[in-house]
Every structure is written in structure tokens, then in C-alpha cells.
């Protein structure tokens, strides 16, 4: 969509755009470009010279089983937490949309979790799910050693997935509910007059009309699970035990700022950038075309 009426003095227009251009050049394009350059060289952590190594950094990372393990973990984390958050949010939104008594209260309260900082809820859930105190500790009184995220990698993974999904249920809920409310009531009433029950209306009218929202949230949640997970992982498990919760972004941070392997971290950043860009392009190119719009 374009405007017909515009202002002629285009230098003022450029002046309006200048602050943004300077900012994104300095803090976005330059670092992104530098990441590409670093990934092709061997950087000294304290400055002073670098050696061109071509694709060696990538080869080294892609040959590293520890890297692949972190990719696999990120995928497991992304799929599990996205599924949990979207599933929970969809069920809640569908029921709130029925507008029974109290739906106003639910509409307000169910979005609270999204306002909480990831590290704050990480610390809260770390206590809730601690093996020796808190909420889940009773499991260890029934059967000692049943639950210990500090030692058992699977438990630690469950812990971060639950914490992350709890936050994103609130986020997904907002979008599902607003999409459900945008469906014209007349369509639903017409179906009801034709004798379609609630489940039938849900399956044949509401869910098909929700597909754009589903795909939109799918991409957003997957992308967020790569980045917003950092605070949760750092506070709850610090990547442990024994790397069991070392997700891709956490590994980039750890290799870059703790291991001072700038080149390796840059190469990992590039791989993650490509992955996220592919996801976004996928959303714009293929998925949006096939889903149902009004």
C-alpha cells in the first residue's frame, strides 16, 4: 500500500530517517557483518591481528559432537516448549471465548505470566522445582532421588521447558483470543442454527480460521525459544548438569565470553542467524499463502 499524497521536499524525509539509519548501521549491520568476518578468520581475543582461515571455523564446529548435541537440545527445547505453550494457550483461549461467567477475570489474569522477566521466573521456578525444598521436593520424600535437576539432565531440561512454556502460554493466549474474537459471530450463529454443536463449530469454523495465527505463533515461539531462553537457562541451570541444558545461544555466550573463542562463537552465531532467517522466510513465503484467510 502506498500513499498518493506525499511531501515533495525529500531531503526532510531523509533527515527523519537518519537516526534510525545510524543506529541500525552501528548496532546491527556492522556487528552482523563483523560476525561473518570473524567466522572466516581466527581472532585474537584481546585484539591484535587475525588470520584468514576460510571455512575452517565452520568445519571445526560442524565436526564437533558437542555442538550437534547443543543443536539437538535446542530443537527439543523449542519443539517441546512451543507445543506446550501453544496447546495450553489454545485450549484456554477457546474456553474464554465462550464468554461464560468470569471470562473477564480470566482474560486479565492469564496474560500476567508474560510480563515477568525470564530470569525472575527462572529463579521462582528454580525454587518451586528444587529437589530439597519448594513445591516438587515432596517427590523426593516419596522416592528419594526421583527428582533432581541438579544431577539429572532430563529433569533439568523438563525444568527449563516448564518455566519457558509458563511464560509463553500468556503470550500465545493473547493472540489466540484476539483471533477468535475477530471471527464474525454471525458465522458461528449460522452454524448453530444449522444444528452444528460446539465441537463441530470449533473444528469446522474456528480452528480453520485460526490457522494464520497458529503459524504466526509457531514462528514467533520457535524464534523466542532460541533467544528468550537464555535468562532462564543461566539462572536455573547455567547450562548444566554436564551440558544437559546448554542451548545454542547459551553455548555462543559461553564460548565467546568465557572461552574467548570469538571465531567459534561468531561461526555459531552465523549458523543460528541463518536458521532464524530461514524460519522467518518460511513464514512469509510458504506458510502464509496456504493458510486460510477470510
Amino acid at each position: 500500500m502506498e500513499k498518493r499524497a506525499t511531501f515533495g521536499s525529500w531531503w526532510i524525509g531523509i533527515a527523519f530517517a537518519v537516526p534510525q539509519v545510524i543506529l541500525i548501521f552501528t548496532f546491527f549491520y556492522w556487528p552482523a557483518g563483523e560476525a561473518i568476518y570473524w567466522s572466516l578468520t581466527l581472532q585474537q581475543p584481546w585484539g591484535g591481528g587475525n588470520i584468514w582461515v576460510g571455512l575452517d571455523n565452520f568445519r571445526q564446529i560442524l565436526d564437533d559432537p558437542i555442538y550437534w548435541a547443543s543443536v539437538l537440545r535446542s530443537v527439543v527445547f523449542a519443539v517441546a516448549s512451543t507445543g506446550l505453550a501453544m496447546g495450553g494457550a489454545l485450549i484456554l483461549a477457546v474456553f474464554v471465548d465462550r464468554e461464560c461467567t468470569g471470562s473477564r477475570l480470566y482474560r486479565v489474569v492469564l496474560i500476567w505470566p508474560y510480563g515477568i522477566a525470564a530470569p525472575a521466573l527462572g529463579l521462582a521456578f528454580r525454587f518451586l522445582m528444587a529437589p530439597e525444598a519448594g513445591f516438587l521436593a515432596f517427590l523426593n520424600q516419596i522416592a528419594p532421588g526421583l527428582w533432581d535437576p541438579g544431577l539429572n539432565g532430563t529433569d533439568a531440561m523438563i525444568e527449563i521447558i516448564v518455566a519457558f512454556s509458563w511464560k509463553y502460554v500468556g503470550y500465545d493466549f493473547i493472540f489466540f483470543l484476539s483471533a477468535l474474537q475477530a471471527i464474525p459471530r454471525a458465522q458461528i450463529e449460522a452454524a448453530a442454527l444449522d444444528g452444528a454443536g460446539w465441537l463441530r463449530r470449533l473444528r469446522d469454523i474456528q480452528l480453520p480460521l485460526l490457522t494464520p495465527t497458529v503459524f504466526f505463533l509457531l514462528v514467533i515461539d520457535l524464534t523466542e525459544s532460541f533467544q528468550d531462553s537464555f535468562g532462564i537457562v543461566d539462572i536455573m541451570t547455567a547450562g548444566g548438569p554436564a551440558r544437559a541444558t546448554e542451548l545454542m545461544v547459551y553455548k555462543i555466550y559461553f564460548d565467546g565470553f568465557r572461552g574467548f573463542d570469538y571465531s567459534g562463537a561468531a561461526a555459531q552465531s552465523i549458523i543460528l542467524m541463518v536458521l532464524i532467517m530461514l524460519l522467518t522466510v518460511l513464514q512469509f513465503r510458504f506458510i502464509e499463502r496456504r493458510v486460510h484467510y477470510k
Binding site: 548496532f27 546491527f28 556492522w30 556487528p31 552482523a32 563483523e34 560476525a35 570473524w38 524464534t223 532460541f226 533467544q227 537464555f230 545461544v249 555462543i252 555466550y253 565467546g256 565470553f257 570469538y262 562463537a265 561468531a266 552465531s269 543460528l272 542467524m273 532464524i276 532467517m277 522467518t280
Partner: peptide, 11 residues
């Protein structure tokens, strides 16, 4: 498309 987290080191 590219959140700060993925280009953290050069930024």
C-alpha cells in the same frame, strides 16, 4: 529477523 542475542559477540 535477527535478535540481539544471536549477534551478541560482535555487538
Amino acid at each position: 529477523m535477527l535478535p540481539l542475542e544471536v549477534r551478541i559477540v560482535p555487538t
